[in-house]
Amino acid sequence: MHPVRLAFNAMATRFEIVILDVDPVHARAAAEEAKREILRVESQCSFYAAASELSRINREASQRPVRCTAGMMRLLQECARLHKETNRYFDPTIAPALARWGLRKQSASGRVPSAEERRTLVETIGFDAVELDASARTVYFARHDRQLDLGGIAKGWALDEARLILEESGIGRALLHGGTSTAIGMGRDPSGNHWKIGVEDPYIVSGEPSWIMGISLQDQALSVSGVRGKWFRDDSGETQIEYGHVVDPLTGMAVSGKRLSVAVSDSATTCDAWSTALLTSSALSVPSHIAGTALQKTDLGWTATIGAPDPDWQVAAEILPLH
């Protein structure tokens, strides 16, 4: 059984699909269909492409209910569910805050908004003002300053949709990931074990990767969020502070410090939302259908601030590096 590997760029990152199947021709065709699905989601959910469905919603939904596709409605319903489940710490209306922090684009240089600015910012955030009418399939913004940004969840959603395509094609063993931060393991890896993913310490940048933990995915998804990735360092104070691309929707403050969160569940969409929420909040309780933890690096190493790493999440020799 030979692995078929397909890599491509989407959502400003690198996606990869690895399939194990007795028929590599069939596996390649299935991987290509999954790729097309991911690209379709990308074009639908792009915040920047003027002609995307999301951009049209952002332009028009504060003026009138905007009819959307069935796929977009399912995604927004998921957003609503996860917004509630995470006690509002996952909020896809965070775009204005990210822009104010200068964290919208990879090349942007960040700045720390004043306390007053942050108070104003918080007023512009809130998925509660996004009204969904499933029967009419419309989206309406009850406040004119709302903007949807699905960047925190689109990778997971795209991977979930791609997994469905693979399952429909009869693929039972595969690993899919987007940017190495969101992954799905289907079935068993080439050695017959569950796909094992390594969570790398982002603060050790030289030499061999340093694994914080290794997680076996038993037909599950995984998402990791961290401050490193898209971040800036504020040198204006007495101490240097690193701010990451996740902003607390309740305070308007960007996440700072050496922090990392991990979420594992059946759905990559759920994982994406929960890893974001866990990175943001210091007091979330994780529901039973999700395995999740938030970690902070101190002089003593990585310690859990929320939940605890699953005892099975241990570094093992057969860990699969995704880089």
Partner: peptide, 14 residues
């Protein structure tokens, strides 16, 4: 760069 091939769980359907 694509195989131009479609996939199906059924060989006959493929």
């Amino acid at each position: 760069k694509t195989s131009w091939r479609r996939s199906s769980s059924s060989a006959e359907r493929a």
